[in-house]
C-alpha cells in the first residue's frame, strides 16, 4: 500500500505536484495517468525518497521510504531504463544492488531468467536495445521480491512484443497480491493493463477511480447494431425513442436505448441481428476530455 497525503512539490514558481492525496492498493494494477509534465515522475521520485516533498507525505506500508531498513525488499522501482552504467555488465549491475540490501546471488540468476536476460548476463548494457535495458530495469526492480512496485512509463519505446510482455508481467505481479503502480501517458495502454486509474494533470488529482467506472461515467453509451434490414430497424428504433446514426451498409450506431431494449425491438419485429455491441466512447477520448485543461503544451489545431 502506497499512501500519499497532501503531497506537494514546488520548484520555485512551478508546482509540479499539487496537494496529491491518494492510496495505491495491493492486488490490482493502478495506472498513473497524465499528460507529459503532469507530475507523475516527480510523484514517484518523492515516494522513493529521491526528491524531498515541499510538503505532505508519501509512505509505503506506513513508513516513509527513508525509514525502510532494506528498501529493495519492500519496493521495486523502474524509473529510467537508461540509468545503468553502459560498461558495467548486467550481472554486476544487479550484483551491487543486491549486495547493498543483503540479497543473495541466487536471486540475481532468478530475476535474470525471469526477464529473459539469462544469456546476456555477462554482456555490457551499452550494447543493449531499449527493450533489453527495460528488462534489466525490471530485473533490478524485482531483485528484492518486493510487495510494492513502481514502474515509470515501462512501455515507452518498446515494440509490441515487449509491450505485451510488460503487460502480462505487471498483471501477474498484481495477481500475486502486490501493489503495482504503473505510470503512462498512453491511455490505450492503461486500458489494457490497469484495473484502477489515478489521473493527474498539472500536478493535481483529476480522477481516482476504477477503470470500468471511469469509462462509463465519462461517456454516453452507444450501441453498434448490425442487421440485414438495417433501414427498417433504424426506423423502429427511432420510434422507440433512440437516435440512430447510419454509417452506411448494415451498421447502425444507436444511442439513448440500452442494448437489451434494442434486442427486444428487433425480436418483436422479426429482425435478425448480426451484431449488438455496447460501446463506450473510447477511453482515449474520455482521458483527453479530462486532461484537456491540464495539458502543459498544447498544439494549435491547423
Amino acid at each position: 500500500m502506497i499512501r500519499l497525503r497532501q503531497l506537494t512539490k514546488r520548484y520555485g514558481e512551478v508546482t509540479a505536484v499539487d496537494d496529491l492525496t491518494v492510496d495505491v492498493r495491493p492486488g490490482v494494477v493502478t495506472g498513473f495517468l497524465g499528460p507529459n509534465g503532469s507530475g507523475k515522475t516527480t510523484t514517484m521520485r518523492m515516494i522513493l525518497g529521491l526528491d524531498r516533498p515541499t510538503s505532505g507525505t508519501a509512505t509505503i506500508s506506513g513508513r516513509p521510504y527513508a525509514g525502510l531498513a532494506a528498501p529493495l525488499r519492500e519496493v521495486g522501482a523502474l524509473l529510467d531504463a537508461h540509468a545503468v552504467h553502459p560498461r558495467r555488465r548486467a550481472y554486476d549491475h544487479l550484483l551491487w544492488l543486491a549486495q547493498s540490501n543483503d540479497i543473495g546471488r541466487r536471486r540475481i540468476d532468478e530475476v535474470l531468467a525471469l526477464v529473459g536476460l539469462g544469456d546476456v548476463a555477462r554482456r555490457r548494457p551499452g550494447g543493449f536495445s531499449l527493450g533489453m535495458k527495460q528488462r534489466l530495469g525490471i530485473a533490478a526492480a524485482l531483485l528484492g521480491d518486493p510487495p510494492v512496485l513502481l514502474l515509470d512509463e515501462p512501455v515507452n519505446g518498446l515494440d509490441p512484443e515487449g509491450i505485451r510482455w510488460i503487460r502480462t508481467l505487471v498483471r501477474g505481479l498484481a495477481a500475486e497480491g502486490r501493489t503495482v503502480l504503473v505510470s503512462s501517458h498512453l491511455m490505450s495502454e492503461m486500458a489494457l493493463t490497469a484495473d484502477h486509474l489515478i489521473v493527474v494533470g498539472r500536478g493535481r488529482l483529476i480522477a481516482d477511480t476504477g477503470l470500468r467506472e471511469f469509462m462509463r461515467s465519462r461517456s454516453p453509451e452507444a450501441v453498434l447494431v448490425r442487421a440485414a434490414a438495417a433501414d427498417r430497424l433504424a426506423g423502429l428504433l427511432r420510434a422507440a425513442g433512440a437516435s440512430v446514426g447510419t454509417g452506411g451498409g448494415d451498421a447502425l450506431t444507436v444511442t439513448g436505448l440500452p442494448s437489451a431494449e434494442i434486442g427486444r425491438v428487433a425480436l418483436a419485429h422479426g429482425i435478425a441481428l448480426q451484431e449488438l455491441t455496447p460501446q463506450w466512447s473510447s477511453l482515449e477520448e474520455a482521458y483527453l476530455d479530462l486532461t484537456r485543461d491540464a495539458v502543459e503544451f498544447a498544439g494549435v489545431p491547423s
Binding site: L48, G49, L50, A66, P71, D80, H82, A83, H85, N101
Partner: peptide, 18 residues
C-alpha cells in the same frame, strides 16, 4: 561522478536511502 553521468546514482540512493 560516473554514477551521476550514468544516472545510477538514483538507483544507489533508492537502494540506500540513508
Amino acid at each position: 561522478t560516473a554514477e551521476y553521468a550514468t544516472g545510477t546514482i538514483r538507483a544507489g540512493v533508492t537502494a540506500v536511502p540513508r
